Amino acid sequence: MTATATPPPDAPAEPLPASVTAVVGLLVLFEVTSGFLQVGLAPLLPDLADHLGMGSAALSWVVSVQLLAAAVCVPLFGRLGDLYGHRRMLRVALALIAAGT
């Protein structure tokens, strides 16, 4: 029989830098805020239509524009990230989200 070698014990992981933790925390905050905004929009649609005097066809564009913007911006920011750096484009996207919110 042949002896099997045991793998060396794992080295303790080093803690993440504070900047990485701050960016991850900011991303989580934006995602939670975005989720609340998207979930909170659906119950408000009938009141929004009454207030603005919109028909159901025009009201459907409120939801469709949000999805259309995401479908355009995701590949666009991916390509711009390849050209100019993903960190820079992440910062730009976060600033745009913060300004829009």
Rank of each mutant, 00 (worst) to 15 (best):
M1P: 06
M1Q: 10
A3E: 13
A5Q: 10
T6A: 13
P7I: 01
D10V: 13
A11D: 05
A13S: 09
E14L: 15
E14T: 12
L16I: 03
L16W: 11
P17G: 07
P17D: 11
P17T: 07
A18T: 13
S19D: 13
S19Y: 05
V20G: 00
V20L: 07
T21A: 11
A22F: 02
A22D: 04
A22W: 01
V23C: 03
V24H: 09
V24R: 14
G25R: 07
L26W: 14
L27V: 13
L27W: 11
L29M: 10
L29S: 08
F30Y: 12
F30Q: 12
E31S: 12
E31W: 09
V32Y: 07
V32R: 04
S34K: 10
S34H: 14
G35C: 08
G35L: 09
F36V: 12
F36L: 15
L37I: 10
Q38A: 15
Q38W: 10
L41K: 04
L41G: 01
A42L: 13
A42K: 08
P43Q: 03
P43K: 03
P43Y: 02
P43I: 05
L44H: 06
L44I: 07
L45H: 00
D47H: 10
D47L: 13
D47V: 12
L48E: 10
A49D: 01
A49R: 05
H51G: 07
L52T: 08
L52W: 08
G53I: 09
G53P: 02
M54I: 15
M54W: 12
M54C: 06
M54K: 07
S56F: 06
S56R: 14
S56Q: 13
A57W: 02
A58I: 06
L59I: 07
L59P: 00
L59T: 08
L59C: 07
S60H: 03
S60I: 04
V63L: 05
V63Q: 03
S64V: 01
V65A: 01
V65N: 00
Q66Y: 11
L67Y: 07
L67R: 04
A70T: 14
A70K: 11
A71Y: 12
A71H: 10
A71C: 14
A71V: 14
V72K: 02
C73G: 04
V74C: 11
V74E: 09
P75T: 13
P75K: 15
P75G: 13
G78A: 05
R79L: 15
R79A: 15
L80N: 00
L80Y: 00
D82K: 03
D82L: 03
L83S: 13
G85P: 03
G85Y: 06
G85W: 05
H86R: 03
R87E: 10
R87T: 11
R87S: 06
R87G: 11
R88V: 09
R88W: 09
M89E: 00
L90R: 02
R91M: 15
V92W: 02
A93Q: 04
A93N: 06
A93R: 00
L94K: 03
A95R: 04
L96C: 06
I97V: 15
A98R: 06
A98M: 10
A99Q: 02
A99E: 03
A99L: 09
G100H: 14
T101R: 10
